[in-house]
Design a protein around this nucleic acid. Structure first.
Length: 263
DNA sequence: TGTGATGTTGAATG
DNA sequence: GCATTCAACATCAC
């Protein structure tokens, strides 16, 4: 599920649902996704605290607590948050659960356990420490252009590199490359300023649209590549042929004859 | 039944 | 430092 728009939707739900509600109970069912503390530690640092604000950079979403510390929710591939009152409604792969003062429960669901949950005394320090790149919706056109310069790797590898720009994942990168009519395997260093600006504009419009739709992909426009990501499908315009290959280690689709390779 | 999947990290290799 | 590839994580869907 989660690239920038999906993570933002989860953040927004969290923001609108649990802010300023005191945590009265924490249950950890599986500590594996807690990456820097034990279940017991997690429980004791959160007990009687409340979330005051949220912050997102790329796919990293933070709940900021009333004492200045934060909890990082990185959803990995299958992380999601459910809210419920009846314990019977707990999601199937719930890894931990908060109960708030109004008896509402937050369940963190994650079938594949790729999520990373960290307790952070100082989130800004953490962001700096891991060298997380600027958010894809915040980076300037000028800085965006810089991330390609001198790089011998593929365009796709650069766009997926969270240390250069954060928030893009496999699906949105393919969508951006399709709409920009550029082959994802193009050499990053060969991207011109003109092309970079075009990619930048499309990236912004695609992400902003998805964010505005709460990442509800079923209502994305028919002309988007999204719905056609399938080797056997006909390209959206009827022109060219859909291809599939591994690029930057990820399954990549593009339309041969429409997306130009630059090298 | 086997395969691959919206992600990240660390290790090993060149 | 840069780039690539691989394994690891655990479950589900086709």
């Amino acid at each position: 599920m989660p690239e920038l728009p999906e993570v933002n939707t989860v953040r927004k739900g969290f923001h609108d649902t649990v802010l300023n509600l005191r945590i009265v109970d924490v249950q950890v069912h599986d500590e594996k996704i807690l990456r820097n503390c034990s279940g017991d530690d997690f429980q004791s640092v959160l007990h009687e605290r409340f979330f005051q604000d949220t912050y997102r950079q790329g796919k990293y979403f933070f709940g900021d607590l009333d004492d200045g510390s934060s909890v990082l929710f990185h959803l990995g591939m299958t992380g999601d948050i459910a809210y419920y009152n009846d314990p019977e409604d707990a999601p199937k792969h719930e890894r931990f659960q908060f109960t708030f003062e109004n008896e509402l429960k937050l369940g963190f669901n994650d079938p594949r356990k790729f999520a990373r949950i960290l307790f952070l005394p100082d989130r800004d320090e953490y962001i700096e420490e891991i060298n997380l790149g600027p958010d894809a919706l915040i980076i300037s056109a000028t800085d965006f252009r810089e991330i390609f310069k001198g790089r011998n790797t593929s365009l796709k590898a650069v766009l997926l590199n969270q240390k250069l720009i954060s928030g893009l994942g496999n699906l949105y990168v393919d969508e951006i490359c399709y709409q920009a009519k550029i082959h994802p395997g193009s050499r990053a260093g060969a991207v011109t300023t003109r092309k970079s600006n075009q990619i930048y504009k499309l990236m912004r419009s695609i992400l902003q649209y998805a964010v505005d739709q709460d990442a509800y992909y079923k209502i994305y426009p028919d002309k988007w590549f999204w719905k056609w990501r399938d080797e056997k499908a006909k390209p959206p315009t009827g022109e060219g042929k859909i291809r599939k290959a591994k690029i930057a280690g990820r399954t990549t689709y593009w339309v041969d004859g429409v997306q130009k390779m630059i090298s």
